[in-house]
């Protein structure tokens, strides 16, 4: 069984938000609900001024704080390592939203349950890739099997020593960043 993850190369990100809207459409989200977001970081003074766009979404942590705090056991990890929410068990208590250090969870307007990025597992299981990956004009994201050392994603992470966001938290995310 593969263990899915994403490598993100922020040096290529232009902040166009194609990923955000592709995700909204694929997952049928309304305009004000999103599974991924883009942070903008400005650094330095001219002539060394620089700007970095950092896309962020659920990190599908190995050691997921959201999973630990869920009082109804609705959050669990799939065999592919994707952190998912069981709709019938979620009571919308928002503990997971508080617990997530990456702030990538939200309450669905209509159902009142906690939702987030699910690596478009519906597409992935049919041999595809998540919508945010395939739409990106500069191919910022590489999706694949972290357990296969020859996969593009594993090689990219190794070559660039890509790091997850806030590794110090011990959450062991499955999204790795090459930062500028």
């Amino acid at each position: 069984m593969p263990r899915y993850g994403i490598a993100i190369d922020t040096t290529k990100c232009i902040g166009c938000h194609a990923c955000k809207v592709a995700c909204q459409n694929h997952n049928g989200l309304e305009y004000d609900q999103k599974f991924n977001t883009i942070y903008q970081v400005d650094r330095g003074k001219y002539p060394s001024f620089s700007k970095e766009f950092v896309p962020a979404q659920c990190n599908h942590c190995e050691n997921a704080p959201c999973e630990r705090v869920c009082p109804t056991g609705a959050i669990y990890t799939s065999p592919e390592g994707v952190v998912l929410v069981h709709r019938n068990r979620c009571v919308g208590c928002k503990y997971c939203i508080e617990a997530c250090p990456y702030k990538v969870r939200l309450i669905d307007h209509h159902e009142g349950i906690s939702v987030k990025c699910w690596f478009c597992i519906d597409l992935v299981r049919q041999g595809g890739e998540p919508a945010c990956v395939t739409t990106c004009p500069t191919q910022v994201r590489i999706f694949g099997d972290l357990d296969d050392p020859d996969s593009r994603v594993s090689r990219f992470i190794a070559e660039n020593r890509a790091q997850p966001l806030r590794p110090d938290l011990g959450t062991k995310p499955k999204i790795f960043y090459k930062r500028s």
């Binding site: 694929h26 997952n27 049928g28 309304e30 799939s78 994707v82 998912l84 929410v85 069981h86 709709r87 019938n88 979620c90 669905d108 209509h110 159902e111 349950i113 939702v115 699910w118 597992i121 519906d122 597409l123 299981r125 049919q126």
Partner: peptide, 27 residues
């Protein structure tokens, strides 16, 4: 309705119809 639309989206991944993982499938 948006709810039906979500159903529509999820059913796009036909292989998942019986999968119990996330809200979308359940819908």
């Amino acid at each position: 309705t948006r709810r039906k639309f979500l159903v529509a989206s999820a059913a796009g991944g036909a292989a998942l119809a019986a999968s119990p993982y996330l809200g979308f499938d359940a819908w």
